[in-house]
Design a protein around this nucleic acid. Structure first.
Lengths: 245, 245
DNA sequence: CGCTCCCTTGACGACTTTCAATGATCGTGG
DNA sequence: CCACGATCATTGAAAGTCGTCAAGGGAGCG
C-alpha cells in the first residue's frame, strides 16, 4: 500500500467487489487511518461494531447522495475521498468541503429529513452504509463527539476564509491535509491531492487562476512543490509561519 | 416587551435576581422565542425539562466562558445575545459567531474537555446552565438535532465568506437575523442589532471602514436604514435578490 | 466636562479578479 | 500505439474591489 497516497493501490477502479477485493478492503477497514480519529478506545470499538457492514466500492466521479435526497443512512468513508458541493444561486457548483478516510458523511443530516449537500467521489472509494435505524444510544454518543469535532473544524475554516490572504488560505488547506495525515501516521510532507485545482479554488473562495499563481509563488519561495497531483512540503514549520503571519 | 428588541425591556441591567425579576424571566423562559427553533413537540418538551434550572442574569460585556476553560456545563441562552470569539495569531480578537435567544452554547464543546472559543455577552442576558452530567440519552438525541442544524448554518457561512462580495456578506448577515426573528414571530424588518459594527465587520471578514461604506451604499439604494443600533429593512425580497446576485 | 470608544469619510495602494489565449494532461477511440 | 477532444492548468495585461492609513465627528459614561 502506497502510504503517500490517499487510497490503497489495490483498490479496484470499478466493478463489483470480488472475494479477493473484499479481503483486501477488510484488511484495510480495520486500520486506524480508516476510522474516525476523534474517537478512541472503547468509543472507537463501539463505532467499529456499528459500521461492520461490508463497505461497497464506488467509482470515481459518482454521486453518493444528492442535495434533496431523503436521508435513509449516513456513510462511513473508509478508502478514497469525497467533495461536498452546493449549487449556488447562479447554478454553479461550489465546493464546501472535502472528506478523507475515517470521515462520517452526513453529520449535518443526522437531525434532518433530506440531504443539504451533494457528495461526489473524487477517486474510487470504499464506503459503509450506516442506516439511520442503527443510530442507537451508544452510537449517538459517538456521533455527538464526531459532530463537535466537525463543528470546531468549521470554525477554523471561518477564520481562514474571513481573514486570510490567498497565500494563507492555501497554506491552511495544505496543512489541514498534512495534519490529518500526521494524526493517522501517514506521510505528512509528500502526498497526492485527490481533487482538481478547480475544486481547491472553489473550496477556498478564490479563482483557479489565483490558485495557480499562489502555487507558483509558494514554489518560488521553496515552501511547496507540485508535480501533477503529487505535492511535497519541504518545511512544515515554514508553511505554518506563513499561515499565521 | 419590545417585540422589536432582542431582550425584554424588563430585564435588569445588572444585580441579583429579585423575586419579581425572576417571575418576569420565567414568564419569558417558556415563550417559544427563547427555545431552540430546531426542535418541536415532544423533543422540545424534553429539552425544556432539562433546562428547567432557573436562568441566572449576566451583565453586558461579561465573559461567560473563556477559551481553554474546562467544560463543566453547556448553556442555554434565554434572553440577550452573545458573541463567540477566537484570538488570532496576532492576538487580535476575531468574532466567529453570534448567538441569540434559544441558542445552546457549547455544541462544539460537547465532545471535548475544554472550550475552543470565548463567549462574551453583548447585552444583559439570562442564561441556564446545563451540567454535562445532565446529558442523558434523551437530551443527547436533541443535541444531535441541534448540532446538525448548527453545522448546516456553518456551511452556509462558508458559502457567504468564500464567494460573496462585501455587500452580499452584509445582506446575508442581516437576512440571517431577520429570518431567525421570522421563525420566532418577532418583527423581521425592524430590530436592534446588539453588537457593534466592529464585531459585525470581524464576523464577516471585512474592515469596519468597509462595513460603514457598505451600509452607506445599501442606504442610498434604499435597501436598509440604520439609526444607532436600530435598523429597518423596507424590502426583504430586494435584500435577498442582492444576496444571491 | 472630558474621556474613551465607536462610526464616518477621503485618498491611496495592494491584492484579486476578470478576460483572453496558450499549453499541458488524461481518457477515449481509432 | 498514437491521435484526438475535453478538461484542466498556466500566464499576461487591465480593471475593480477592498484594505490601509489618516483625520474628524459623535455618542455614551464617569
Amino acid at each position: 500500500m502506497d502510504s503517500a497516497s490517499f487510497h490503497s493501490a489495490n483498490v479496484p477502479v470499478s466493478g463489483e467487489a470480488t472475494s479477493h477485493q473484499q479481503a483486501n478492503c477488510h484488511a484495510c477497514v480495520f486500520k486506524a487511518q480508516c476510522l474516525p480519529a476523534e474517537l478512541d478506545g472503547e468509543e472507537l470499538a463501539d463505532f467499529e461494531r456499528a459500521v461492520l457492514h461490508p463497505p461497497r466500492p464506488v467509482k470515481a466521479g459518482q454521486v453518493l447522495v444528492r442535495k434533496g435526497d431523503a436521508v435513509h443512512a449516513l456513510f462511513a468513508l473508509r478508502v478514497g475521498s469525497l467533495k461536498a458541493v452546493i449549487n449556488a444561486a447562479d447554478g454553479a457548483e461550489r465546493v464546501v468541503g472535502f472528506r478523507y478516510p475515517g470521515a462520517v458523511i452526513g453529520l449535518a443530516e443526522s437531525g434532518h429529513k433530506v440531504w443539504a449537500r451533494t457528495f461526489v467521489t473524487l477517486e474510487s472509494a470504499w464506503i459503509c452504509r450506516i442506516p439511520i435505524d442503527a443510530l442507537n444510544h451508544t452510537l449517538r454518543r459517538q456521533l455527538v463527539h464526531l459532530m463537535s469535532a466537525c463543528l470546531r473544524r468549521e470554525y477554523d475554516h471561518h477564520l481562514t476564509l474571513a481573514f486570510h490572504t490567498n497565500a494563507q488560505k492555501v497554506a491552511s488547506f495544505l496543512l489541514e491535509i498534512s495534519e490529518y495525515r500526521q494524526r493517522r501516521h501517514l506521510a505528512a510532507q509528500r502526498f497526492t491531492l485527490p481533487m482538481s485545482n478547480l475544486d481547491i479554488a472553489s473550496y477556498l473562495g478564490m479563482r483557479h487562476e489565483s490558485l495557480s499563481r499562489t502555487f507558483g509563488t509558494l514554489h518560488s519561495r521553496g515552501l511547496f512543490y507540485k508535480s501533477g497531483k503529487r505535492i511535497h512540503i519541504p518545511d512544515l514549520e515554514a508553511l505554518r509561519a506563513l499561515r499565521s503571519e
